[in-house]
């Protein structure tokens, strides 16, 4: 029965998503179509990628507030190099991924070696990345490089007339890789162990330092990749891109059933957490009369609901133990 309890949050998340989709299908014409579902993926591909990185961070017991800023920085560097210096995307994309990973690695090292709360270190990282955007340019840089436009516009037809974008493929590959990493590699299991108890992990002889730094590196890398996908989506670089994205990401991870105290969580849950955010936006746009800010309120409410649910579940578990 304890195995059931483990999956409660994820079951709640998945059923909530299905419920919302069914409700939407009954209420709105044209809601019930594969394309609506696929659009969720198309519009949230970058969110999905960041959320995957964030899931690892939160499972390890930390938090990363720099993700939105790293996305913005990535769009900015990509745009300026490709557009203003005419660099080839083949060099630019690996370069921005490397920069994102290095940023994450640096933050992870400071968090681990100097024992400063992840929250404040990644906050500094966020300031830094946003600030660097403006060092490059205060204006929006529009991209018309053929490679980027091709990536943005290519539609991959699926049987049945619906389509997805290349970004969706990237995001799905990331999700699949993350599930594999989380479940089938030592690194993944060490992340769970550290989230469960860092002290124990240390005494069990696990490579705590390496794992923790790697977690933030991974999150930085995911943010940079999300930034690349975001560049495909927006075809521009701008310092105000993805403002507040860190909150959407954390919300998606929590709604996906990952415990903020660390140690428990599933990438699949995160996937549905992102999809729930997407479907809320879709429903609100289908509703027409509701304005966009309702998205934030509903997400805030859901966040509250899920945090309280986590609290109740962990309290029940404590009672069960004694």
């Amino acid at each position: 029965m304890s195995i059931n309890r483990k999956y409660v949050p994820i079951v709640v998340t998945t059923s909530l998503f299905l419920l919302m989709f069914i409700a939407g299908s009954f209420r709105y014409n044209g809601f019930f179509s594969p394309q609506v579902l696929l659009n969720l993926l198309i519009d949230n591909a970058f969110l999905l990628i960041v959320a995957v990185g964030m899931s690892f961070v939160i499972i390890s017991g930390g938090i990363d507030l720099s993700v939105g800023a790293v996305i913005a920085l990535t769009t900015m560097i990509s745009a300026s190099l490709v557009q203003q210096l005419n660099w080839s995307p083949i060099i630019v994309i690996p370069l921005v991924l490397l920069i994102g990973a290095l940023l994450g690695c640096g933050m992870g090292a400071i968090i681990h070696y100097f024992k400063i709360q992840p929250f404040i270190v990644t906050l500094a990282g966020m300031f830094l990345a946003r600030g660097l955007c403006y060092v490059i340019s205060i204006q929006t840089i529009t991209i018309d490089n053929p490679f980027y436009t091709a990536m943005a516009q290519t539609k991959i037809r699926l049987p049945g007339g619906s389509f997805i974008s290349i970004s969706v493929i990237i995001a799905l590959v990331v999700v699949a890789a993350a599930i594999y990493i989380a479940h089938y590699t030592s690194f993944g299991r060490n992340v769970y162990a550290i989230g469960g108890s860092e002290q124990s992990a240390l005494l069990m002889g696990l490579p705590v330092a390496k794992t923790k730094i790697l977690v933030y590196t991974l999150s930085g890398l995911c943010s940079a990749l999300a930034g690349v996908v975001f560049t495909f989506y927006m075809l521009s670089g701008y310092g105000l891109h993805a403002v507040g994205m860190e909150l959407d990401t954390i919300a998606a991870v929590v709604i996906g059933g990952t415990l903020l105290t660390g140690g428990v969580g599933y990438i699949v849950g995160t996937f549905f957490g992102v999809m729930i955010q997407g479907i809320i936006q879709t429903i609100i746009s289908f509703e027409g009369t509701l304005s966009s800010w309702w998205t934030k309120i509903v997400i805030g409410l859901l966040l509250c609901l899920f945090i309280l649910l986590q609290k109740v579940l962990s309290a029940r578990q404590a009672i069960f133990k004694s």
């Binding site: 479940h183 089938y184 590699t185 469960g196 108890s197 992990a201 069990m204």
Partner: peptide
């Protein structure tokens, strides 16, 4: 000093899991 969020088997073997090409054989 174990991680109560992991399974019994993992707690015994974590760090030295049976692996093939890096893949943990659960």
């Amino acid at each position: 000093n174990l991680c109560t969020n992991l399974t019994v088997a993992e707690n015994i073997f974590i760090g030295r899991e049976p692996r093939r090409f890096g893949r943990i054989l659960w």
